[in-house]
Amino acid sequence: MMAYMNPGPHYSVNALALSGPSVDLMHQAVPYPSAPRKQRRERTTFTRSQLEELEALFAKTQYPDVYAREEVALKINLPESRVQVWFKNRRAKCRQQRQQQKQQQQPPGGQAKARPAKRKAGTSPRPSTDVCPDPLGISDSYSPPLPGPSGSPTTAVATVSIWSPASESPLPEAQRAGLVASGPSLTSAPYAMTYAPASAFCSSPSAYGSPSSYFSGLDPYLSPMVPQLGGPALSPLSGPSVGPSLAQSPTSLSGQSYGAYSPVDSLEFKDPTGTWKFTYNPMDPLDYKDQSAWKFQIL
């Protein structure tokens, strides 16, 4: 009977010793046993002879290597770790002494450095960015050149030099007046198309007034536009458009034309069986010896 009264063996659950049927240790109110408190290391007290050895090595170098620390530790009968900690504390003490010396050398008012006064946003004049500046400075420094007289040679050079070769001289006033084509001369031969040399188009003023001019072949195509416009036809070669000034309004060009419109200028042929003959000019830059190549039959 006494065997049943004795408590059973101890069981360990999660490293906790349980005594038989008792489960009081598993209750929430019972805390787990805490780790033992780490003991504080005792402070090391250095003797005068030990301090002399350490100070002598510190005077040589503030960062001794492990071999120098072990050698000193053997002399003063201390572990190497204590020597390492002593050098660490000695360097910190040396830095603190240097900072105190710097503070003593500075004057009393030198510690508080005078800061520059901050400028207020409204006091300083700042350039306004509302208006974009002129990058080319046209509004201040540029002045347009004065327009020359209508009959000045410089204007003629600016007008005619675009179309004339570089080897030719500017046309005088008398020749510029001949550039304007007359109405009857352009409409006299509506079906004849003559190819003149390129030099005649640039230099010869008579080429624009003769039936064999460069633009005589364009007349049949330009004249039928007159009834559609409801007024006189516009002429690209009329009046002052080739003269001194090219800047004319469309209203000033509306009254200039080749001449009176005639039914002869239409595109319809009077004789459907007729042929169109292209007159060959020996001055043509295209060297075609066979003139029969310039004739064709309209079917």
Rank of each mutant, 00 (worst) to 15 (best):
N6V: 14
P7E: 00
G8H: 05
G8Q: 02
G8D: 00
H10I: 14
H10N: 00
S12N: 02
V13W: 11
N14H: 13
L16Y: 07
A17E: 00
A17I: 14
G20M: 10
G20S: 03
G20H: 08
P21G: 07
S22Y: 14
V23H: 04
L25R: 05
L25M: 01
L25A: 01
H27R: 09
A29P: 07
A29G: 07
V30I: 09
V30G: 03
P31G: 05
P31S: 10
P31I: 11
Y32S: 01
Y32P: 02
Y32T: 02
P33M: 12
P33T: 04
S34M: 10
A35N: 06
P36Y: 09
K38T: 09
K38Y: 13
Q39K: 11
R40A: 14
R40D: 13
R40V: 15
R41A: 15
E42F: 07
R43W: 13
R43E: 14
R43T: 15
F46S: 14
F46P: 11
S49A: 09
S49P: 08
S49R: 08
S49W: 10
Q50R: 14
Q50N: 11
L51I: 09
E52Y: 07
E53V: 11
E53L: 07
L54V: 13
L54E: 13
L54P: 13
L54C: 15
E55T: 07
A59D: 05
T61I: 03
T61N: 03
P64A: 13
V66I: 04
Y67Q: 03
R69G: 12
E70G: 09
E70S: 08
V72D: 14
L74S: 10
K75P: 14
K75E: 14
I76P: 10
L78I: 11
P79N: 06
S81L: 08
S81D: 01
R82L: 14
R82K: 04
V83I: 06
V83E: 14
Q84Y: 04
Q84T: 10
V85R: 07
W86E: 15
F87W: 14
F87C: 12
K88I: 12
N89D: 15
R90Q: 13
R90A: 12
R90W: 14
A92W: 11
A92E: 11
A92S: 11
Q96Y: 06
Q96T: 08
Q97H: 09
Q97G: 09
R98S: 06
R98F: 01
Q99T: 02
Q104R: 13
Q105F: 04
P107K: 05
P108W: 04
P108E: 02
P108S: 09
G109M: 01
G109V: 04
G109P: 10
G110D: 03
G110E: 03
A114F: 04
A114V: 06
R115T: 02
R115E: 02
P116K: 10
A117F: 11
A117T: 04
R119I: 06
R119K: 06
R119G: 02
K120P: 01
K120I: 02
K120R: 03
A121C: 03
S124A: 08
P125N: 05
P125I: 10
R126P: 03
R126Q: 05
S128T: 07
V131P: 12
P133M: 06
D134S: 09
P135C: 13
L136S: 03
L136D: 11
I138D: 03
I138P: 10
S139W: 10
S139K: 05
Y142C: 09
Y142H: 11
S143V: 05
S143W: 10
P144S: 02
P145V: 07
L146W: 03
P147Y: 04
S150T: 05
S150K: 09
S152C: 05
P153Y: 14
T155H: 11
T155N: 01
V157Y: 09
A158F: 13
T159L: 12
T159E: 02
T159F: 14
V160S: 03
S161A: 10
S161F: 14
I162C: 00
I162Q: 00
W163Q: 01
S164E: 01
P165M: 09
A166N: 01
S167K: 06
E168P: 13
E168T: 06
S169W: 12
P170C: 03
P170E: 05
P170V: 03
A174Y: 08
A174G: 03
Q175C: 12
Q175D: 02
R176Y: 06
V180I: 10
A181Y: 12
S182R: 11
S182E: 06
P184G: 08
L186D: 00
T187I: 13
T187G: 07
A192F: 13
A192N: 01
A192W: 14
M193S: 00
M193A: 02
M193G: 01
T194V: 15
A198E: 01
A198Y: 09
S199Q: 05
A200K: 08
A200H: 09
F201M: 02
F201T: 00
C202Y: 09
C202M: 07
C202L: 12
S203C: 11
S203W: 15
S203K: 10
S204I: 08
P205N: 01
S206Y: 15
S206K: 08
S206H: 10
S206N: 00
A207L: 11
G209I: 11
G209Q: 05
S210Q: 04
Y214D: 00
F215I: 04
S216E: 02
G217N: 07
L218F: 09
L218A: 02
D219L: 15
D219E: 09
Y221F: 08
Y221M: 03
Y221N: 00
L222D: 00
S223C: 08
S223D: 05
P224G: 12
P224Q: 03
P227M: 13
L229A: 02
G230Y: 15
G230V: 15
G230Q: 02
G231D: 03
P232N: 06
P232I: 14
S238F: 15
G239W: 12
G239C: 09
S241I: 12
S245M: 07
S245H: 09
A247R: 12
A247D: 05
A247G: 03
Q248N: 02
Q248P: 01
S249M: 13
P250Y: 14
P250K: 14
P250F: 13
P250Q: 08
T251W: 12
T251Y: 11
S252A: 06
L253T: 03
G255A: 09
Q256N: 05
S257T: 06
A260W: 13
Y261L: 06
S262E: 02
S262Y: 15
S262C: 09
S262V: 11
P263Q: 08
P263N: 06
V264F: 07
D265T: 15
E268Y: 15
F269I: 03
K270W: 14
K270I: 12
D271C: 15
P272R: 13
P272G: 06
P272C: 12
T273D: 00
G274F: 10
G274D: 00
W276R: 00
K277D: 00
K277A: 00
T279M: 06
T279K: 09
T279D: 00
T279G: 01
Y280W: 15
N281Q: 13
P282S: 02
P282V: 14
M283T: 03
M283C: 06
M283A: 07
D284R: 14
P285K: 14
L286E: 02
L286F: 07
D287K: 15
D290I: 15
D290R: 11
Q291V: 12
A293G: 12
A293M: 11
A293I: 13
A293F: 13
F296K: 00
Q297I: 11
Q297C: 15
Q297E: 08
Q297V: 13
I298D: 00
L299E: 00
L299K: 00
L299M: 01
